[in-house]
């Protein structure tokens, strides 16, 4: 059995990717079990998805703690999520990144692979320039580096099941397969004996409810930030009223100020602002 774990953010297509992967594996004549897990349903929130591939029915329905392959759709997740937690020694880490594989580390040894899926998605107009949907480019790269499913089956699944722009997505998958780079990595130190509890896992095992935003770091979900043009702002307070996260304060003159600790970058304020005084700007 091959076990794959995906890490992405709401809106990047991790959920659709897990469905497409199950379809592609099925077209190859194998059994797949593919499911996403999200703690909250918000654009930008971390999403984990799991896929098992086998030749016979799968007698297991639980999270994948020790994957053979980890796929990271958003390199920003590497900052605060231990995405390689539990990755088997000799396993494969595939990251959406313009950098060479050598820019990343894999202390336990295995294979590093990178593909610039964001550039591919923008180029193929999959999603929008500010919110590219990288899933199909990543799946193309995954097919090429693992060989766990055929690129032909992946393209067949994309054409059959991607609801909008299937041809662009198919092209993105091909680009992903053609441009993925991989490098074997030797273990950086003597491998420690495998321990059940050793590696922290990149999904919540325990209670995470009732935590305020400054502990949960929900602002890390943000890919766009609102910027207010004070010359246009009429101080109407619509941004404050519509913000679902109470992320606005006012300065001494009554102009709105964004509390970036709480802002998740949803853009509702920019949509609702009567004088169009708010622009959503890509986070560096």
């Amino acid at each position: 059995m091959l076990e794959i774990r995906f890490h992405g953010r709401g809106g990047q297509g991790a959920v659709v990717a897990s469905e497409l992967l199950a379809q592609a594996v099925f077209f190859d004549g194998k059994v797949a079990q593919s499911f996403p897990f999200f703690g909250v349903e918000r654009r930008g929130a971390p999403v984990t998805a799991f896929t098992r591939i086998d030749d016979h029915p799968i007698e297991l329905r639980s999270f994948i703690e020790h994957p053979d392959v980890v796929v990271v759709l958003d390199p920003g997740l590497l900052r605060d999520t231990p995405v390689t937690g539990g990755l088997k020694p000799g396993g494969l880490l595939l990251v959406n990144s313009p950098q060479a594989p050598g820019a990343f580390s894999l202390p336990q040894g295995g294979t590093l692979a990178t593909v610039d899926a964001t550039r591919i998605a923008v180029g193929r107009k999959v999603g929008t320039a500010t919110m590219p949907v990288v899933n199909t480019a990543m799946l193309g790269a995954l097919a090429r580096v693992t060989g766990a499913f055929t690129e032909a089956s992946l393209e067949r699944a994309i054409v059959a099941f991607v609801p909008s722009h299937p041809e662009e997505n198919r092209a993105a998958a091909r680009d992903g397969a053609e441009s993925v780079r991989m490098e074997p990595v030797a273990p950086s130190s003597r491998p420690s004996p495998p321990s059940e509890e050793a590696a922290p896992l990149p999904f919540p095992e325990g209670p995470v409810a009732s935590l305020p935003s400054n502990i949960l770091h929900t602002s890390s979900w943000r890919t766009l930030r609102p910027v207010i043009d004070r010359d246009r702002c009429t101080r109407c307070n619509f941004c404050w009223e519509f913000c679902p996260d109470d992320a606005f304060d006012f300065d001494a003159e009554g102009f709105p100020v964004v509390k970036l600790l709480y802002c998740k970058g949803c853009g509702i304020c920019a949509t609702e602002c009567p004088p169009d005084a708010i622009q959503m700007v890509t986070e560096a």
């Binding site: 469905e19 379809q23 059994v31 797949a32 593919s34 499911f35 329905r61």
Partner: peptide, 10 residues
């Protein structure tokens, strides 16, 4: 929830 509702399988 999710273990069936969102799990894709044959």
């Amino acid at each position: 929830a999710f273990y069936l509702s969102h799990t894709f399988e044959p």
